[in-house]
Amino acid sequence: MGQSFWRNVKMKTMKKTDICTIENSKIILNEQIIFETKTENFSDFAKEAYKNFELNYPKFHKMDNLSKLAFLASEMILKNDDHSKTALVFANKSSSLDTDFKYQESINSEENYFPSPAVFVYTLPNICVGEISIKHKMQTENAFFVLDKFDEEFLNSYAAQILQSGKAEKVLCGWVELYQESYKAFVYLLTT
């Protein structure tokens, strides 16, 4: 009974107001392509997108690729609005494995043993949520889940519980998957 009951509640109480997708070197906001480049490499694509939208946030360049992906998608939706009551519920499949792999390479051999704190800090998937929180001063509910595939119903039900409890007024939900050159972000804003 749980799931069909839930769907009814969700339909009545929440709406999705903005959706941003990033994949194949394209940024799509509410079904409109708002940025596109021929650059296939993710790092270069992210840099070009950053310039295009004049984000003017130097911390961006220190982020790992997962954080850049989550950050870019969130920027398109959050803009400069007030988000002091917007919670963040994110998920992906590969956790922080992209950076984990790079960090592991830095400690694999005794000759080239250079563990870097600046890399190590990104070996947690929730850091990208922290980056978004810092940019928008969102002292709000945060959660990061690792799932084998995108499960919108799960994210929405967790978000709905946050909204229902009064702990937030909106929830930015996101699937932010990245490993090496394979990436996809699907981020959306839910309100009551």
Partner: peptide, 19 residues
């Protein structure tokens, strides 16, 4: 229950304990 972000720093605890 609650889990609030400091929105302050990715690796350093907040000086104010806000979160």
């Amino acid at each position: 229950d609650s889990a609030i972000n400091d929105a302050n720093h990715i690796s350093g605890p907040s000086r104010t304990g806000d979160g």
